[in-house]
Design a protein around this nucleic acid. Structure first.
Lengths: 165, 165
DNA sequence: TTAGATGCAAATGGTTTGCATGCGT
DNA sequence: ACGCATGCAAACCATTTGCATCTAA
């Protein structure tokens, strides 16, 4: 990461009208249509590459990806996408709350498709991220922020190392 | 940050003999001698630039610095140091437990002179870090790591934003 | 004397940007 | 058609590295 782009705080929920009820009839279970709808809901035009990236990201359940990983997957999937677009898309998705950027400090930026309240294990030797069930880490009493500030988010990263290296 | 260097886990304490008793007589309170001793204790040769950087870092109480900040301070203090040496020194200090690298994900790496158990506020707009008193955030029950792994460290970053931007 | 430190500049590598071209609405 | 999206390549910037020169022990 090179420039300081604030990690999307909380969830700056959709600017567009949230569908009143998610009754999707026969579209249910069709990832492709789900992605299209997801994009519409947040006001992003469902272009070919956004659809493809969204499909890769959200079809397989919770994931932690770097730009490079996503780019590679897209390429393998024969989806023509440039790395710049992958970066753009990841950031746009993050801005609208579809993704969450995880601060592990490593050299790369990680994006998490799970935008619910939860924290992470980080395996240092492998640069590998995994979710910790929300129930498993309890942040006791949140600290009182200084005057004029409020808590945007609390990140907990539990760093793991191999037992007795 | 460009390459993935694992954040120094726990505190890989000194390789050298820890002084049996810190009875320092008239040296007490002299930051310069303290730094020299600190370096000796961890087995680092007290060179001119390490002394100077150590003095800048540790004389003023708890601090959070980036390589650039430390470099600038040293330069202002008329201490001839190259940026590369600042990086080297920061990492060496971190390896021996004199510093602690903080993962805020930002574009830069932060180093904290407070290596005791504590967590951080991070003010997103200002890229500013501050300590949270250890008592103020309670990580309830630490999560159970996967088989074969143990917890190296738990990092908690409380991200702050200005109230009602 | 000599292993370890330092400085400089060049290389690295993730990420961003500028601008011409493409595509969804 | 209009304007956002995309691709490419160059720019960026924090950090690292190679190597020749110094310096603490």
């Amino acid at each position: 990461m090179t420039q300081s782009r604030p990690i999307a705080p909380g969830v700056p929920l959709p600017t567009l009208q949230p569908r009143p009820a998610p009754l999707r009839g026969d579209l249910t279970g069709c990832p492709w249509h789900d992605v299209k709808e997801k994009l519409r809901e947040v006001g992003l035009r469902p272009t070919r590459q956004r659809m493809a990236l969204g499909w890769i990201l959200f079809a397989k359940g919770d994931r932690h990806v770097t730009a490079e990983m996503l780019f590679e997957e897209a390429t393998h999937a024969k989806v023509p996408v440039s790395l710049a677009t992958v970066y753009n898309t990841l950031h746009q998705f993050t801005e609208v709350g579809l993704l969450r950027q995880v601060a592990v400090d490593g050299s790369k930026a990680y994006f998490d498709t799970n935008n619910t309240e939860h924290h992470h294990f980080f395996i240092e030797d492998q640069n590998d991220l995994m979710d910790i069930p929300a129930s498993d880490v309890v942040v006791g009493k949140p600290p009182i922020p200084p005057e004029g500030y409020e808590i945007a988010r609390i990140d907990v990263v539990v760093r793991l190392r191999r037992k007795q290296g």
